[in-house]
């Protein structure tokens, strides 16, 4: 197996009284495509968010490239995420006031890329996901599936080393979901990127090299 990229040990996380993760340990190799699945409420999304550094676990450790991720400061983690991770969530991820193209270009603009160059790269990614005609639309005008494609384009725009996707095909039908997934996984393979995706769709899970099945906050 390739070198270990993520290593989690005894990760716990609770929301108020509900325990989402109750001690999860795992390793993910660089370039691996991993699906996290399990019944709803099993802690899938929480695990993904913790690995992506979007939430901080209450106990346990998460290491990325051999260095602790969970005890990095908020700004550090954000910058790491911006440069090395791409994230696609289920909803609520596009800035409502910016057009699709501006949304895709956002991570580049935050990295102080040239505006024109950022837009060019953004349009390229939108084209890849068959969403070039949506470039100047505002998120409010997009359907769930279209917004998902825009979000996927944004996740790839920086050429990330790891792609995190939470139910990436949730808002799409079978064929549309297949296209999105194929593009996403194809792009990941081109960049030798790791993919970690949460799904309750077995057909999506089957596209991964490996499945991590959660039940009640632990790996089954």
């Amino acid at each position: 197996m390739s070198e270990i990229q993520f290593e989690a040990r005894g990760v716990r996380k609770a929301y108020g009284r509900t325990e989402a993760l109750r001690g999860v340990s795992l390793t993910i190799g660089a370039g691996e495509v991993v699906a996290i699945s399990g019944p709803s409420g099993s802690g899938k999304s929480t695990l993904l968010l913790a690995l992506a550094g979007l939430i901080r676990p209450e106990a346990g450790e998460i290491a990325y490239d051999g260095a602790r991720l969970d005890d990095l400061g908020e700004a550090h983690r954000t910058r790491l995420r911006r440069r090395q991770f791409g994230v696609v969530l289920q909803f609520g991820q596009l800035v409502p006031e910016l057009t699709a193209a501006q949304n895709v270009a956002l991570p580049l603009l935050l990295e102080r890329h040239d505006r024109a160059a950022a837009r060019r790269l953004a349009l390229g990614q939108l084209e890849r996901f068959g969403a070039l005609d949506l470039a100047d639309a505002l998120p409010g005008e997009l359907s769930g599936g279209e917004a998902q494609r825009v979000a996927a384009a944004r996740a790839l725009v920086t050429g990330p080393r790891v792609i995190f996707a939470d139910e990436p095909t949730g808002a799409l039908d079978t064929v549309g979901g297949e296209h999105l997934l194929k593009t996403l996984l194809g792009a990941a393979r081109d960049n030798d990127a790791t993919v970690v995706m949460v799904t309750h769709d077995n057909r999506v899970a089957a596209r991964a090299d490996r499945e991590i099945f959660l039940r009640d906050g632990v790996i089954a």
């Binding site: 057909r203 499945e211 089954a220």
Partner: peptide
């Protein structure tokens, strides 16, 4: 049965992977 069900899942998923 839980253990059996989990192993069966792995088999099914493997077959699905081949078919995909």
């Amino acid at each position: 049965a839980a253990d059996y069900l989990q192993r069966q899942r792995t088999v099914h998923l493997g077959r699905m992977r081949e078919l995909l």
